[in-house]
């Protein structure tokens, strides 16, 4: 068994009655990875996370955490996990310090090390000055931080965060993202979200789940190359006829944006930018702007999730037949 693989999920299925929430999910998380778990609402992100943390039993499937099977040795497996569910599990009537101390004991942090663990987690999450306050009186952002502190207090090897930045203001979101990167340096992190820039900002591995199925599992670099340029915007002071533009090598489609701007679609492997510049000089088109347009992560996401839909209905039909 590779010691660097901290979580391995094999052939995971989950039904709620007849509704299949997660179908045939397989993946691995290695040490030092920050895995972004993406998907539209109701795609099965939370269900998968609940299964990995032992809150929900899968219908079929095998999960190992740090080499320990979650169902055969649940206690050993769970001791390596830190989990922040969608709703942070906080006791409103407790003080922050008191609550975190309880969590540390719950996760069997040896008694002499508790003060140290408390201090470290509170400093990491910027909670040092609210330690004595009641959790119920804290703002949503601070409660979220207490939730994260609770998940890292016992220095687990894997931290699982379910939509950690939901409902926070932009400054807090940035702080929490910094915090996640910090945690990622020491632990592995699985992070679910439907906010795409968040994945770009903090993750180094991306998984997209849609209708219970994994449809993409790639590094962030891999995803960025998927977002390769296929469009150019050019500005011409004396534009020629559209047909003339179309004759330039590599151009597949031209669309007029306004009187001087054109959107040009071209093949991914061959950019016509150079040709366009040469042509414009010789034919006096008066080129003053040439901007490659990037496909955003959002577009990749929409393309992937929507392209998959006919495919999944096919599957369902096959199963029905």
């Amino acid at each position: 068994m590779n010691p660097d693989i901290l979580i391995s999920v094999h052939n995971l299925w989950r039904y709620y009655g007849h509704f299949c929430a997660v179908r045939e999910v397989n993946f691995e998380v290695k040490r030092g990875q920050i895995l972004g778990f993406l998907g539209p609402n109701g795609a099965g992100k939370s269900t998968t996370m609940q299964m990995i943390t032992g809150n929900l039993a899968p219908t079929i499937g095998q999960i190992t955490v740090g080499g320990q099977d979650l169902f055969e040795n649940p206690i050993e497996a769970k001791s390596q996990l830190g989990y922040l569910p969608e709703h942070p599990p906080l006791y409103q009537e407790m003080q922050v310090i008191e609550f975190l101390k309880f969590c540390a004991k719950l996760h069997r942090v040896p008694r002499p090390q508790i003060p140290q663990a408390l201090e470290r987690a509170m400093e990491h999450c910027g909670l040092s000055h609210v330690g004595k306050r009641l959790i119920g009186n804290l703002s949503k952002g601070y409660q979220q931080r207490v939730g994260i502190a609770q998940a890292i207090i016992h220095t687990p090897s894997v931290v699982i965060l379910d939509e950690p930045t939901i409902g926070l203001d932009p400054i807090q979101i940035r702080e929490i993202r910094n915090l996640i990167s910090k945690i990622g340096a020491e632990h592995s992190v699985i992070l679910s979200t439907h906010i795409l820039p968040e994945v770009q900002a903090v993750c180094n591995q991306v998984q997209i789940i849609n209708q219970g199925q994994l449809i993409l599992n790639d590094t962030i670099q891999g995803l960025l190359t998927q977002m390769k340029t296929t469009q150019l915007i050019i500005g011409l002071r004396h534009p020629p006829e559209l047909t003339e533009l179309l004759q330039v090598d590599g151009i597949e489609e031209v669309e007029q944006v306004d009187s001087t701007h054109f959107r040009i679609r071209h093949a991914a492997e061959h950019s016509p930018a150079e040709q366009l510049v040469e042509q414009s000089v010789t034919a006096h088109w008066g080129l003053f702007e040439l901007i490659p347009e990037k496909r955003s992560l959002e577009q990749v996401f929409v393309d992937l999730t929507q392209a998959e839909e006919p495919h999944t209905t096919d599957l369902i039909n096959k199963e029905a037949a």
């Binding site: 943390t53 032992g54 769970k78 989990y83 969590c103 996760h107 609770q150």
Partner: peptide
Amino acid sequence: PLLLSAPI
């Protein structure tokens, strides 16, 4: 979930 995901 806090109790369920703890090693107890």
